[in-house]
Design a protein around this nucleic acid. Sequence first.
DNA 1: CGGCTCTTTGACCTTGCTCAATTCGCGTGG
DNA 2: CCACGCGAATTGAGCAAGGTCAAAGAGCCG
Lengths: 259, 259
Amino acid sequence: MARTEHEVPDDLPKLGGAGAANPFLLNLLRRDELSAEERAIALELANVSNEYPENHELVSEGERAKFSILLLSGFAARVNLLRDGRRQITAIHVPGDFVDLHSLLLERMDHSVVTLTGCAVAKVPHERLRALTVSHPHLARMLWLLTVVDAAIYRRWLVAAGRLTAPAQVAHFLCEMFVRLRSVNHAADDHTFRLPISQTELSDAMGLSVVHVNRTLQQLRAEGLLEWQSAQVRLPDWDRVTDLAEFDPTYLNLVRTRR
Amino acid sequence: MARTEHEVPDDLPKLGGAGAANPFLLNLLRRDELSAEERAIALELANVSNEYPENHELVSEGERAKFSILLLSGFAARVNLLRDGRRQITAIHVPGDFVDLHSLLLERMDHSVVTLTGCAVAKVPHERLRALTVSHPHLARMLWLLTVVDAAIYRRWLVAAGRLTAPAQVAHFLCEMFVRLRSVNHAADDHTFRLPISQTELSDAMGLSVVHVNRTLQQLRAEGLLEWQSAQVRLPDWDRVTDLAEFDPTYLNLVRTRR
DNA sequence: CGGCTCTTTGACCTTGCTCAATTCGCGTGG
DNA sequence: CCACGCGAATTGAGCAAGGTCAAAGAGCCG
């Protein structure tokens, strides 16, 4: 995880114009170019949308899914429950994430996906996706890429959980959230963004206790690395916070290249 | 992670006959049926093999890979280094694993892959794989599946790291290794298998200190859950060890179904 | 004005870490 | 055959990060 550069690339293209409002398309366009036809299909996949309230189970453990869920607005979490009721959140999903693409290939869900806020989602039938792997291989590779980026994020969370102190781990998470949200135009350049998750949820994601997360946040605040009030987060000192977290955004693959 | 059944399916097909000796083909055949042509291609991918000694860096952090590495024999690890030299192993790969399939879609490697033993590997050019996504969509989906299973394993490691005690975490790892090795015919039905990794490597995978891993192993031994001498591991009480670890093999997707 | 959820605090405990030293297994050269 | 070297496994002692339990504030909505 040696860093060659700390900074988020300041040359993140603004990607205005058609479809820029659609976070899913944006997610793809950050990483490769798409033909007009591919863009049209992507927009169509993200078209029909259902609304769900906070705390709704979008995907249930044990089920055999018939469609994959694309998150258009709101936040969701991948949750694993333990016998004694404790839980681990293995991923936080933000607008534009194809939350449940994995289920296309998994025989049976080994975890559930829950909304953390009200969410608008598109449900894409697996048949449709399977057909795309035949008719549009490049677009299919882009979807594959999304799952591979998910995997890269898991790896980074593993590193953070295994080898960083609590403050560094939390800082790493916040840096990641900032970069991911900014890539879909949900974060401002001054490192401010909306993060509507409770400390309990954060503690489940970090594998820490709520009490310790609370104290960790206070510590980050005291060191001038974090402001967080009523779901508004700001990272006032990006250089120091990325340094503490050993954060290097390479793993997010926010680079346009042939895939 | 509620378990519906602890046991590894005892009906794991033996999958004898042509190609059964090839762990990569086996890995695919455990999860779906393949046409004769697909089987031929899979065998061909796993054909030309290079040998590397222990502790060889197969993939280096920062590089732009031009081929993916398929592991035919031996053990390898995905490694992330931290600034201070500490490291986290995010995955252990066993024979048959398409270790580095992820690099097909990643722009630049954010971690390295290192052999833990002598290894025989096949290097598959990315061009070849990209062509397969066009010419053989189903086979491509099977490769996609392999990366999605990798992701499922990461998630499970996250749960174990975040919410299990050290003994349970280590036990979970050993259960997983057993099931994965058995699926490529590298483990016996009496829960014995060869696991040529040092306690230091295990500690890097678990995110624990070597000292603590050593004590944890002693504890598992004392409780009659583990025998481990000179790279031979045995789990004498499968029911109790899966219970301790809350191990449920569903996430490994060792089920033949349409993908 | 409750009632509810989320955040914060205090006190105390325990898991797992660090540092440092032995011991063991095993291959090598004498 | 045996001393030596070396990496890996093991042990001991003391410490610290993070957990648990329980209670007290804060913010928000009906």
